[in-house]
């Protein structure tokens, strides 16, 4: 077995341990043995210890488990998406966020929150649906706009167009929220991101979506390797550059779009995790994609665990904590491997 496969197996096992540990820890104490027996009975249907009070079963199975799983999936999806954007656009700071995907999603979800549509359509997934639709629309707008000014779709054109679009969409949302007093707090809390009280529905929806999206991206791993050399070299090697770029940008945006539609905007993970993985295992997408998936997921689970346990009963916004925890780690890894002459 190659080094890479061993590390991948170890990382997968570590991710599983982190997930189970995060389900066992929370603001209400449930012992690890109780947690495991609740989880086992949840997944296998085997009758557990009847002594466990019902509320603890509900806390572990209905409140924590969906939350931890959603955090893992979101972290994984955002990191993979970030890795793709950085490689495709050959820019270490490129991400779905700088391309305006999150601004689009915020505007879509924010409009629904502000104009009270979610009350009228109660019971449906109005806010996530609007967020997702708006983020997809944003990417299409972005690509169309970029192509209109630069038919060869150069990276700088896409990145600059994304920034313009992002600023423009943010301005619209700011205007909307100034005109309304009561929706402001809701928009703010949506923009800060959270995994709480989402239930299993987003997990059932996002798990296959993220798995499928990551697999689809993994099938483009060779094209991704070649694209990082630059457009001309890739074209010389027979890669249909424009088409591949288009497909990958859309795939990565959809991964981000559907994730933040459910969780709200959570930044930094998509930027930092792929860089950390590249520093540790090199830039080949055969390692970058799967390790970004596992690292991103585990990191997000830990960040969320920190949010909900460090200062109960208040919950910290997970978006702030990802940056708070991630920035020093990122700086350390980036700088130390620099010094060692990488």
């Amino acid at each position: 077995m190659s080094n890479r496969s061993v590390f991948l197996l170890i990382s997968a096992a570590a991710s599983l341990v982190i997930i189970i540990a995060a389900v066992a820890i929370g603001s209400v104490a449930v012992s690890p043995i109780e947690t495991i027996s609740i989880l086992v009975s949840r997944f296998t249907g085997i009758q557990m210890d009847p002594e466990i009070p019902g509320y603890r079963i509900a806390i572990v199975a209905d409140l924590r488990l969906p939350r931890v799983l959603l955090a893992f999936i979101a972290g994984a999806a955002l990191s993979v998406s970030g890795a793709v954007m950085q490689s495709v656009l050959k820019n270490p700071l490129a991400s779905s966020f700088t391309l305006g995907v999150s601004s689009g999603a915020s505007l879509g979800a924010g409009s629904v929150i502000l104009f009270g549509l979610s009350g009228a359509l109660h019971g449906m997934l109005t806010v996530p649906a609007a967020g997702f639709a708006a983020s997809v629309l944003t990417v299409f707008l972005l690509l169309r706009f970029s192509r209109a000014i630069d038919p060869s779709l150069r990276n700088n054109t896409i990145i600059l167009s994304g920034m313009i679009l992002s600023l423009f969409l943010n301005a619209i949302l700011t205007l909307f929220s100034v005109l309304s007093t009561d929706g402001l707090k809701n928009i703010l809390s949506w923009q800060l991101g959270s995994f709480a009280l989402r239930g299993m529905t987003p997990v059932y929806l996002l798990l296959p979506l993220t798995a499928a999206g990551t697999l689809a991206i993994f099938r483009y791993r060779r094209e991704l390797d070649i694209l990082t050399f630059g457009g001309d070299e890739a074209a010389a090697l027979g890669v249909p550059v424009r088409k591949t770029k288009n497909t990958l940008v859309i795939l990565a945006s959809v991964l981000t779009g559907c994730t933040i539609a459910f969780t709200g905007v959570i930044g930094f993970v998509d930027l930092a995790i792929p860089h950390i993985v590249r520093r540790l295992w090199g830039p080949s997408h055969r390692t970058l994609i799967p390790f970004s998936f596992l690292f991103g997921g585990s990191f997000m689970v830990l960040a969320d665990l920190f949010c909900r346990t460090v200062y109960p009963p208040a919950e910290l916004p997970v978006g702030a904590v990802t940056a708070l925890m991630g920035a020093p780690v990122f700086a350390h890894i980036y700088l130390s491997s620099r010094r060692s002459g990488a």
């Binding site: 929370g26 603001s27 209400v28 509320y55 603890r56 509900a58 806390i59 409140l63 924590r64 979800a109 629904v112 929150i113 009270g116 979610s118 009350g119 109660h122 019971g123 997934l125 109005t126 806010v127 996530p128 009561d182 929706g183 707090k185 809701n186 809390s189 949506w190 009280l197 989402r198 239930g199 529905t201 109960p312 009963p313």
Partner: peptide
């Protein structure tokens, strides 16, 4: 989790809480 641990019979939730998540 703490709301659950209180084991209430009735919970009144502001619609603002629901609208922030939409479900």
């Amino acid at each position: 989790e703490r709301v659950m641990a209180l084991e209430p019979d009735i919970i009144f939730v502001s619609s603002m809480t629901r609208d922030a998540t939409g479900r």
